[in-house]
Design a protein around this nucleic acid. Structure first.
Length: 424
DNA sequence: TCTGGGGTCCTAGGACCC
DNA sequence: TCTGGGGTCCTAGGACCC
């Protein structure tokens, strides 16, 4: 019987201040300046350069609360441009896939990579190569944390962010590092668990690592115990390398201005429904269930709060925009009440499945074929000539409810106009 | 005045069946 | 008349992630 070295080596590659880095690519002047990117509606700060972090601007902080600080320190502001970030993300992931056959794209700006095929001596250099190649080919700076489990590689990545090399291979003196790692920063430990753990005297990752397995399982849940095990170096969360299609699809936005009347809500829900339908069609999926939700602002204490949702089970799973919109409007009418200042509406398409496997009844062959052809034509036109080249009249023309995007860089990677110019 | 959006997974509890 | 308990499936809501 032969023993092989079964220690896994999982790298977590994370793009540094991803959205900020994307904006910097097209605007080299702000390379060393404080920069923030705001969420939809210019609501919250969702990406910060190191210089902005140093000013004390926190992640997720409402923009209006730091407006003065931002002004005073001449922080550069950008409204988010997800088309741009998504495009750059795809490029980064493509490069990462050249380093291993097993890559799990975990989010828009990070990926787990199985590097178990390397030996101990090669690994740190390999991490450096990854960083260099991604930077060279895409212009995006990254940090690489490597360890034996996903949870530990997350820890390693946190530490790597502070290292000059940007790479951290966590395999010795692990306990020392964990002692200096706050429990709330551990992957999988959120607000509630932090509260629970600190109440029980667990303040850092080292203490969490050493809790009894039965205790943590009983007092939290399997995820809690998996996290603790992973800190011990026992891999419980596998690498998910095949990119599965989504199970739900949600499109929702906060309004730039509060909305009171039904007609404007209908326009909005129609628009979101069009987007959602387009998204699932792009994945060749159909939806069997649709939920519409509306709510007023949960922050405004002076006005009555209202929040509700209505779900409709569709007789036949579909991705047909017209069909979905019809039902979405029905659902909306069901929960709409007059006299409220609405802040947000949204639609969730669920019970998604492959379109081939959709149920068939006597009418479907002809109808479906017709609608498929029509939908494909719409998607193609919108892709070619820009989103909303074709829309439906009910989506509204003036769109007074649409969100604020005062600081957009308006960069489109498909357009040559926005490429930086080089003087030779 | 102004507080994002889009996901996944787990669990408790209800409905139903035998 | 007595009235069990286990299994499955589904769902809503909560917690977490970026």
């Amino acid at each position: 019987m032969s023993f092989i070295n079964s220690t896994k080596k999982i790298a977590l590659v994370d793009c540094n201040s991803f959205y900020v880095s994307c904006e910097r690519l097209f605007n080299p002047k702000i390379q060393y300046k404080p920069v923030v990117v705001l969420s939809n509606n210019d609501g919250c700060v969702i990406s910060r350069s190191n210089q902005a972090k140093a000013l004390g601007i926190k992640m997720g902080e409402p923009y209006f609360k730091v407006k003065e600080l931002i002004k005073k320190n001449k922080v550069h502001i950008f409204s988010s441009n997800y088309a741009l970030y998504g495009d750059l993300s795809r490029r980064v992931m493509k490069v990462l896939k050249t380093f291993s056959l097993n890559v799990e794209i975990y989010s828009i700006d990070e990926a787990f990579i199985d590097l178990s095929f390397l030996n101990e001596k090669e690994i740190e250099n390999y991490g450096k190569e990854i960083r260099e190649k991604v930077l060279k080919w895409t212009g995006i700076p990254t940090s690489v944390g490597i360890s034996s489990t996903k949870t530990l590689s997350k820890v390693a990545n946190h530490i790597a962010k502070k290292e000059k090399t940007g790479v951290m291979y966590l395999y010795k003196n692990i306990d020392e590092k964990l002692k200096n790692f706050p429990v709330e920063d551990v992957w999988g430990v959120g607000k509630q668990l932090t509260k629970f753990y600190t109440k029980n005297g667990i303040d850092n990752a080292y203490q969490l690592k050493n809790v009894s397995n039965t205790w943590v399982k009983k007092r939290t849940n399997v995820l809690g115990s998996k996290t603790a095990m992973e800190l011990r170096g026992v891999s419980c969360i596998g690498l998910d390398v095949h990119e599965e299609k989504r199970k739900n699809c949600c499109v929702s936005r906060s309004f730039g201005k509060k909305v009171t009347n039904l007609q404007k809500l209908e326009e909005a829900i129609t628009t979101y429904c069009l987007n959602a339908a387009e998204k699932i069609r792009a994945d060749d999926q159909v939806s069997k269930r649709l939920t519409v939700f509306i709510r007023t602002s949960p922050f405004n204490k002076n006005r009555k709060h209202y929040s509700n949702a209505h779900t409709i089970d569709l007789p036949i799973a579909t991705s047909n925009s017209i069909e979905l919109i019809k039902n979405a409007r029905k659902a909306l009418k069901n929960i709409y009440k007059t006299g409220y200042f609405y802040q947000k509406v949204g639609i969730i398409l669920s019970k998604l499945k492959e379109s081939e496997s959709s149920e068939i009844n006597l009418l479907t062959p002809i109808l479906e074929k017709k609608s498929k052809t029509l939908m494909r034509a719409i998607d193609y036109t919108n892709m070619r000539y820009g989103r909303n080249a074709i829309s439906i009249a009910q989506a509204g023309i003036d769109k007074v409810w649409k969100m604020r995007r005062k600081h957009s860089s308006r960069i489109d990677t498909a357009s040559f106009d926005s490429l930086p110019k080089i003087r030779i």
